[in-house]
Computed example of a mutant assay.
Amino acid sequence: MKKFIFTILSLTIIAGAYGVGFGVPEQVTQLWGGRATETAAAPQSAQDGRRGQGRATTVVLTPLEARAYTLVLRTIGSAVSLHRTEVTATDAGEVIETALRANQRVEKGDVLLRLDDRTERLALEIAEANRDQAQATVTRYEGLRSNGSSVVTDVALSEARVALRLAEANVGLAEVALDDRTIVAPISGQLGLSDVSVGDRLSSGDAIVTIDDTSSLLATFEVPERSIGLLAEGKRVLVSTPTYAGRVFEGEITAFDSRLDSVTRSATVQAEIENPEGVLLAGMTFAIRMTEDTDPLPVVPATAITWDRTGAGIWAAEDGKARRFPVTIRYREGDQVWVETDAPLGAQIVAEGASKLREGAQVTAAGARRGPGA
Rank of each mutant, 00 (worst) to 15 (best):
R114H: 10
R114G: 10
L115D: 05
R118K: 15
T119N: 06
L122H: 04
A123Y: 01
I126K: 01
A127L: 00
A127D: 01
E128H: 01
N130S: 10
Q135H: 04
A136F: 15
A136R: 10
A136D: 15
A136Q: 13
V138P: 00
R140E: 12
Y141F: 15
E142D: 07
G143Q: 14
G143L: 12
L144T: 02
L144Y: 10
R145I: 14
R145Q: 12
G148M: 07
G148E: 03
S149Y: 08
S149A: 12
S149P: 08
S150L: 09
S150W: 01
A156V: 12
L157M: 09
L157C: 02
L157V: 03
E159Q: 14
A160N: 07
V162F: 02
A163Q: 07
L164E: 12
L166W: 00
L166M: 09
E168Y: 02
A169R: 05
G172L: 04
G172V: 04
L173D: 12
A174G: 11
A174C: 08
E175G: 04
E175K: 12
D179A: 15
D180Q: 15
T182K: 03
T182I: 07
I183W: 06
V184S: 11
P186V: 10
S188Q: 08
G189K: 09
Q190L: 11
Q190H: 06
Q190T: 09
L191W: 01
L191F: 01
G192Q: 06
L193A: 14
D195Q: 12
S197Y: 04
S197G: 13
G199Q: 09
D200I: 07
D200N: 15
R201C: 02
R201F: 07
L202Q: 06
S203H: 05
S203I: 00
G205T: 11
G205Y: 09
G205D: 11
G205K: 13
I208Y: 01
V209P: 07
V209F: 01
T210G: 06
T210V: 07
I211T: 03
D212Q: 07
D212V: 06
D213C: 02
T214W: 01
S215P: 01
S215L: 09
S216G: 00
S216F: 11
L218T: 13
A219V: 15
A219H: 13
T220L: 05
T220P: 04
T220C: 02
F221N: 13
V223P: 08
V223K: 05
P224Q: 06
E225L: 11
S227M: 14
S227D: 15
I228V: 15
L230N: 11
L230T: 10
L231M: 09
E233C: 08
E233K: 14
E233N: 15
K235G: 04
K235V: 13
K235R: 13
R236I: 13
V237P: 10
V237M: 06
V237H: 09
L238H: 06
